[in-house]
C-alpha cells in the first residue's frame, strides 16, 4: 500500500467523520465544525491526487487553495449568522443582555 493510497483513504475517512457529526450533533456550532472536517477530507483527497506525480500536479493544489478560501468565507458567514441569531433573540426579551 503506497503512501498516496493511505492519504486518499484518510481523506475519505475525514469526510465521513464530518458527515456523521453534521447529522448527529444538534448544536449548530458543532455542525459548522463538522462541515469544516468534511472540507479537510476533500482537500486531503485532492492533495493526495496531486502527490501522485513528482513534481506534484499543481492543478489540485491550486484547487485546494481556492477551496480553502471558499470554506473560510462560508464558515465565517455561518459563524456570523450564528453569533447574531441568539443575541438578537435575547435582546428582545432582556434589555440588559
Amino acid at each position: 500500500m503506497s503512501t498516496v493510497a493511505i492519504y486518499l483513504l484518510t481523506g475519505g475517512l475525514l469526510f465521513v467523520i464530518g458527515l456523521h457529526g453534521l447529522i448527529v450533533r444538534r448544536s449548530l456550532l458543532r455542525k459548522i465544525l463538522a462541515l469544516n472536517i468534511m472540507d479537510s477530507g476533500v482537500f486531503m483527497v485532492l492533495l493526495s491526487l496531486a502527490a501522485r506525480s513528482d513534481p506534484p500536479d499543481p492543478v489540485p493544489q491550486a484547487m485546494v487553495l481556492t477551496g480553502i478560501v471558499v470554506a473560510v468565507s462560508a464558515t465565517a458567514l455561518a459563524l456570523v449568522l450564528l453569533v447574531i441569531a441568539p443575541s438578537r433573540y435575547t435582546d428582545e426579551h432582556d434589555p440588559n443582555a
Binding site: 503506497s2 493510497a5 491526487l49 501522485r52 506525480s53 506534484p56 500536479d57 499543481p58 492543478v59 489540485p60
Partner: peptide, 9 residues
C-alpha cells in the same frame, strides 16, 4: 483511483 495518472501536471 489510478495512482499512476499524473493529471494535468
Amino acid at each position: 483511483i489510478p495512482l499512476t495518472d499524473s493529471g494535468l501536471q
